[in-house]
């Protein structure tokens, strides 16, 4: 897995992270099935997937969102992240090597919005989303 942590400025358009994950294998899907409790057989059982009209099993959208979350957490402290949302634009096929990118979409005094994408090796967008980051450490409480 490769990570490029760029020295970045808090301004619109800045790429804050770019991280590529290893190609998704059947084994990775089996592990995610167990680790996440998402036991929908369409992701791990090729016979079931074919009966449902798919050529093969395909990745859980939440596995790819998990990758995006991991990339986000490498740059921002979890407690500074107020919101994290994604739309699953296309099915992620076996063998996909997902690259997650985060780009600053807006900055104001307290918050920064990061545009998120997850693309496969062909550049097909699988997930698009946003994260809202609290710039000031305004959060208090019993941590």
């Amino acid at each position: 897995m490769t990570t490029s942590n760029l020295a970045w400025k808090q301004e619109v358009g800045t790429l804050v992270f770019e991280k590529t994950f290893p190609p998704i294998t059947r084994h990775a899907l089996a592990l995610y099935c167990g680790a996440s409790g998402d036991t929908n057989p369409v992701h791990v059982d090729i016979d079931f997937a074919k009966t449902s009209g798919f050529d093969d099993v395909f990745a859980h959208g939440m596995l790819v969102m998990g990758y995006l979350g991991s990339a986000l957490e490498e740059v921002f402290a979890a407690r500074s992240i107020s919101r994290f949302s994604t739309r699953f634009s296309a099915i992620t096929q076996l063998g996909a090597a997902i690259t997650c990118r985060g780009t600053i979409a807006s900055v104001d005094h307290d918050f920064m919005t990061i545009e998120l994408t997850a693309q496969d090796q062909d550049g097909d967008v699988k997930l698009k989303g946003q994260a809202l980051i609290q710039i000031q450490s305004g959060r208090t409480g019993d941590e």
Partner: peptide, 30 residues
């Protein structure tokens, strides 16, 4: 820890739940 490893997350000794873990936890326990 297992979930972090599967989603390629840093901080495997971290005691904080990763960002998408709550979605999983509800399914694991329901």
């Amino acid at each position: 820890r297992t979930f972090r490893r599967v989603v390629g997350s840093p901080g495997s000794n971290d005691d904080t739940a990763p960002l998408t873990y709550l979605f999983a936890l509800e399914m694991l326990e329901s």
